[in-house]
Design a binder for these strands. Structure first.
Lengths: 269, 269
DNA sequence: AGGAATTCTCAGCGGATTCACAGGAATCCC
DNA sequence: GGGATTCCTGTGAATCCGCTGAGAATTCCT
């Protein structure tokens, strides 16, 4: 909670928030989690638990994007989609679907440019997808470049390419998500708990030790031999920053700067 | 610096101006899907479910193209076509017909340079056909070249010719569509679900495994022995890009330009 | 109809990935 | 220094994912 303070970022953040996101899911725990994460991202949110209210809210509140669970108590997700389209033809939709239903009725959902995420997902993934949708729909005031840059390290969210000093680095899916999270919050300490909550699926039952493991993997690939960029703050967490010797805080998001950094004044656990 | 590239939308939809497309179909699900896909392509759409309203909208809204299901509840496709021609003599029409429709009748309809697609179709196919119609009718402000280029790989959407490094490559229909989709989104990871939604017909019930299969076919024909251009991002999807060693991001649509690839000063890999 | 080309299912292989565990290294505190 | 705490990383097991061969089903061509 804490003051949803506006923290100074290295560059003036062009407020691409103000986006409104409607979350439609009947699991309260999940939609709370999501709302919090999205609000964190700088977006406004509303949550609804059933199709009928969702449609009402959609009409009245006119969100810029919708996160829609395809399994709803009162009406089929597809029916909700139909209503949505009629009310807000342009609004992009991010579907949530159960893992095993994947093959099922996702057909055609992404054809129009919408996207989906299978449960259980990681917040990082969901937010990234949503950001992609908003970017494409033009809802973001400034269309952000898809490349994150910290020092001589770059990460392209569209091609999933990562390179340091020009040479490409191969990462696994988890490594990629972890690095993206770190790079989205350069020079900011992230606790293992935060990382776990953000990068691993919300139902992950494992030990916090995986974070150490994956940081270790990342270091091997990214800091190998060179000036280290990933640093440990014992007892607090990890952070990434341009290697000393680099130009100061060349730590920007190529086009605009993400406010997402927004983890200002976060609390640790 | 160079970083300031104007970024584009997902599908290499070259923002060819806001063409207006009228969709006439009585199946809501399908016309929703279509509207969505076309809007995504950068076009404006209106949907109507019967011939009468379709004609009214055609007269008032004056679309640049019409997608017309020949099976309508109130009037025969032929009658609608007649009305259309009277109202908008020049407008190109893309017919939707059932697979087993009487072929010669359609042949008659499309005599004027119109085109048709049989249900069930893939979004890729429909969009490509429509783009062709618009291109020919001159409705597109910038007439895009019909050749997609990525590295030394070229694909001509009109002649359906594909060549790598000058030597021609024979592809089956599905392989062609898959490659076109990849090439329209160079250097962007496309998930198997996205590919399935876009390249396979909307009613395809099969497993995502076909995508792997067809990627495998494509690789045999395109990457055979040479520097691979089709890459797997395990856990994420596939992407195509110029082989390393090629000229930088010569990854353009000959006429308009496409995403990230383009500009000089990009780093190579 | 007969044969060829194409599409697709199925199943198995093999390597990549994820993760638990545990011992060792670094750091902190008294 | 000594012990406690925290972090790092090698090892190995279970699992997941993608690739591909074989062949059935379908469509296309003549």
């Amino acid at each position: 909670m804490s003051a949803h303070s506006e923290h100074m970022n290295e560059t003036a953040a062009p407020r691409d928030h103000a986006c409104r996101v409607l979350v439609v899911d009947d699991e309260d725990a999940l939609s709370d989690l999501l709302s919090m994460a999205l609000r964190y991202e700088g977006w406004e949110t509303r949550a609804e638990g059933d199709g009928t209210s969702a449609l009402r809210t959609a009409r009245e509140w006119r969100p810029d994007a919708v996160v829609l669970d395809v399994m709803l108590p009162d009406m089929d997700g597809l029916a909700v989609l139909g209503g949505l389209r009629r009310a807000l033809p342009e609004v992009p939709v991010l579907f949530l679907t159960a893992r095993d239903a994947v093959e099922d009725r996702i057909a055609g959902l992404t054809a129009g440019g919408d996207d989906y995420v299978t449960k259980p997902f990681s917040i990082e993934e969901l937010v990234a997808r949503l950001r992609g949708l908003l970017r494409r729909s033009g809802a973001l005031s400034v269309r952000p470049e898809s490349v994150l840059v910290v020092g001589d390290l770059t990460l392209d969210e569209e091609s999933h390419e990562v390179a340091r000093g020009g040479s490409e680095i191969e990462l696994t899916a988890t490594e990629f998500e972890l690095l993206r999270y770190l790079m989205r919050n350069p020079r900011r300490v992230l606790s293992k708990a935060q990382i776990l909550d953000r990068v691993w699926s919300y139902d992950f039952g494992g030990r916090a030790n995986v974070v150490e493991l994956y940081v270790s993997y990342l270091r091997r690939k990214i800091d190998a031999g060179r000036q280290p960029m990933i640093h440990t703050r014992r007892g607090a967490g990890y952070l990434i920053k341009a290697a000393s010797g680099e130009h100061a805080g060349i730590t920007a998001r190529a086009g605009s700067l993400s406010p997402s950094g927004g983890l200002a004044g976060e609390d640790e656990r």
